[in-house]
Design a protein around this nucleic acid. Structure first.
Length: 301
DNA sequence: GATGGAATAT
DNA sequence: TATATTCCAT
């Protein structure tokens, strides 16, 4: 975004990558973009798209056909948005509610029905501005996931695949995401919670079973350590204490103003608030004990 | 083959 | 350390 702030000619020069298997569509897009002095790169195959997107920071916005041959476009869009932090606009002839919803769910910022309306192209830059306003030096915010940019920039081979894009990011378990995780775990019961079910209950776009499995593993280790400490009579180890405090503090600072849309989650937050008012110290213990006492008991036995 | 979980790598 | 990935058992 910085490149636009002091640029009086903006949005002229907006860098657009258009991906569609149909050359005619690409040419139409190019014509329209030219009228507004956008700089267009046309691309009519999945492999070209991957190749062009290998280098980051080359485009401000991506237009992509929802039905590219030889490509799982939704998966691609998901990975591309995570990695590139640019707005993605999906295009298709059909505009059923389900396809629009799916596009948005996978990270597209909007969905255009073909043939494209010139007005849409004209105001395309607004999506870039909106996207940029959520920009942060360290994080990209994608849906409800926060993804840390990968620091390493290893060389990549030419046959870049979606994995190449996907592998560069790592998920950060924000307090709110952890909260959702806890809700799911408690709903299932800690002893019965399995990654796949947790994932299903959390229902967070882009979150994968591997993410959950890894987090669950860490979470169990934390619980076990905490239980061991208690067993040995040391009230609370500095370590587990700071872990608890960290989550609690972040949850507090995060969300009590921005209530969740999701009613379940809202309820959980309210529950959290009440627990906090009553006994701040016992907050996490109460929360964990809810339905998971037996697991803790087993650990401590 | 799908899944879960521990071990291991990054 | 946090998270991702691999490896092995079920």
């Amino acid at each position: 975004m910085a490149r636009f702030v002091d640029n009086p000619s903006f949005p002229a020069g907006l860098r657009v990558i258009a991906i569609d298997h149909d050359i005619i569509v690409l040419n139409t897009i190019e014509d329209m973009c030219n009228r507004y002095h956008y700089q267009v790169t046309k691309c009519n195959s999945a492999s070209d798209a991957l190749y062009l997107l290998e280098r980051k920071d080359c485009y401000d916005v991506m237009l992509i056909d929802a039905h590219m041959p030889n490509m799982d476009v939704y998966d691609f869009v998901q990975n591309a948005t995570l990695q590139l932090n640019i707005p993605v606009i999906m295009m298709a002839v059909d505009s059923t509610k389900s396809s629009i919803m799916k596009s948005i769910e996978y990270g597209a910022c909007t969905y255009w029905t073909k043939p494209l309306a010139e007005e849409e192209v004209k105001i395309m830059w607004q999506h870039v501005v909106r996207n940029g306003s959520t920009e942060n030096k360290e994080y990209e915010i994608v849906g409800s996931l926060v993804v840390q940019e990968c620091r390493k920039r290893g060389r990549e081979d030419a046959n870049a695949s979606k994995e190449t894009l996907a592998k560069k990011t790592s998920l950060s378990w924000s307090p709110e995401l952890h909260q959702q995780f806890l809700c799911a775990v408690n709903q299932l019961g800690l002893d019965k919670a399995r990654p796949k079910m947790i994932l299903k209950i959390m229902d967070v776009p882009g979150l994968r079973v591997g993410h959950v499995a890894s987090h669950l593993q860490k979470y169990r280790i934390h619980l076990k350590r905490s239980a061991d400490e208690t067993k040995r009579g040391r009230t609370k180890s500095k370590w587990s204490d700071s872990f608890q405090a960290e989550w609690i503090d972040k949850v507090h600072s995060y969300d009590f103003q921005t209530k969740s849309i999701d009613q379940d989650r809202n309820d959980n937050l309210i529950q959290t608030e009440l627990a906090d008012q009553d006994r701040n110290d016992d907050f996490l213990a109460e929360w964990i004990d809810c339905g998971t006492g037996s697991y803790l008991h087993n650990l401590m036995a």
